[in-house]
Nucleic acid binder design. Structure first.
Lengths: 211, 211
DNA sequence: ATTCGTTTTTATGTATACATATTGATTTGT
DNA sequence: ACAAATCAATATGTATACATAAAAACGAAT
């Protein structure tokens, strides 16, 4: 035991990846026996993995107490994304107060060295702010919310118009607020940034809900 | 199975209560076999309960991968309490925007009907704001953080001076901001309220850390 | 034909036996 | 006497068998 890679960890990571990637879709059933057979192990570690996914909000209990990939209502998603935005805003405010000069320079460089790969730059920017907030509890919270929301963020890049260009502008504005140590401004800008970033998803979800 | 009270739920609740109440103190060891024997069940449900407590942050892994009641550094506690304050502040802002007239009246009455039991009034006030925020994700987050921080909040009532009176004043100020629908003001006041509410704990912790 | 009751199926919950790793003690060699 | 290696003790990790509840399938009665 205490193996370098425990079976439970392995199956947990595998299932988590499938859910996040969309290979497993909301509503899909996950039975302990089936997964155990697929991965060539007993139900015990599978059981542990499913319970962890449950507490992480990636799966839920269906009829017969069976596990199914979590189905979220539009209201649930609105809550989740709103929370994500609020936590990001907190990070931005704390980062504006606490980032060291070195961290500020690094943050500036992330946007300056924009090589066109928006997703990469975006991830780096948000990561830098998360670390700059210097609060491990919030950082863990943010990681968790990001993972939980990933399954519904795929389609966010069929965004309309020049969403990426707009997002770059918003990043620059946040950067300026952080450099100016204006926490409240950074937080407000970040809330708006997250809201517009996720508006495409919301529209998509609302459209599906009406269908 | 799927019993109205599963063994795992029972032992989870029991251990959780002991940790929160301080019967089990940080650093105390929790062995699967020992607990199983005490509760008259097998290791399996105990194991599930311990893993849940782990994911909830109430216990951690010690040497030999044994479970021990979580020991938090001063920095960890600072992060945790800061996060708690930030989330409460979010609730206050959202509640200021979203509470219905009925909810505002109820909130007003909670402070008006103050019968002297500060803890009760305090709990009701924060609960009302949490519900008024109308975001289940944030509400769940807040519940979680409250549970995680409970073990270190006992001593918060050996607060110095007229902490309770000051707290009442802060509550009234927050109420006014909420009634005025001034979200940013409510959030700022709430952050300050949480910070001063928890300052006694911080002082105590710092004193212990120096000892 | 429909509805209520029974049966069967199938999922998770629990108990127990065994595997394995880590810690600490013991022993042996220099 | 000290150090390194080995062995024993004890914890969690895993496999498997059985218990049990809940939903679906089936059948009989009205």
């Amino acid at each position: 035991m205490a193996n370098s890679e425990r079976s439970a960890d392995h199956v947990h990571a595998a299932l988590s990846e499938r859910i996040v990637a969309g290979t497993l879709r909301p509503g899909d059933a996950l039975t302990e026996s089936g997964i155990a057979e697929e991965f060539g192990m007993s139900r015990t570690p599978v059981r542990e993995a499913l319970h962890r996914l449950d507490s992480e909000g990636l799966v839920e209990r269906g009829p017969r107490r069976a596990f199914v990939v979590r189905r979220m209502s539009v209201a649930d998603l609105r809550d989740l994304f709103e929370t994500l935005g609020e936590i990001e805003a907190i990070c931005a405010r704390l980062a504006a107060h606490r980032m060291t000069e070195i961290e500020r320079d690094a943050l500036t460089r992330i946007l300056a060295d924009d090589n066109g790969h928006y997703a990469t730059v975006n991830a780096r920017f948000h990561d830098a702010l998360r670390r700059g907030a210097q609060n491990r509890t919030i950082a863990a919270l943010l990681d968790d919310l990001n993972r939980r929301s990933l399954p519904w963020r795929e389609a966010s890049f069929r965004g309309s118009g020049d969403r990426i260009g707009q997002s770059r502008d918003e990043h620059r504005a946040i950067l300026q607020a952080v450099l100016a140590r204006d926490g409240d401004c950074a937080a407000t800008l970040m809330r708006a940034h997250m809201a517009s970033s996720l508006s495409a998803i919301s529209e998509m979800l609302l459209a599906e809900a009406h269908a």
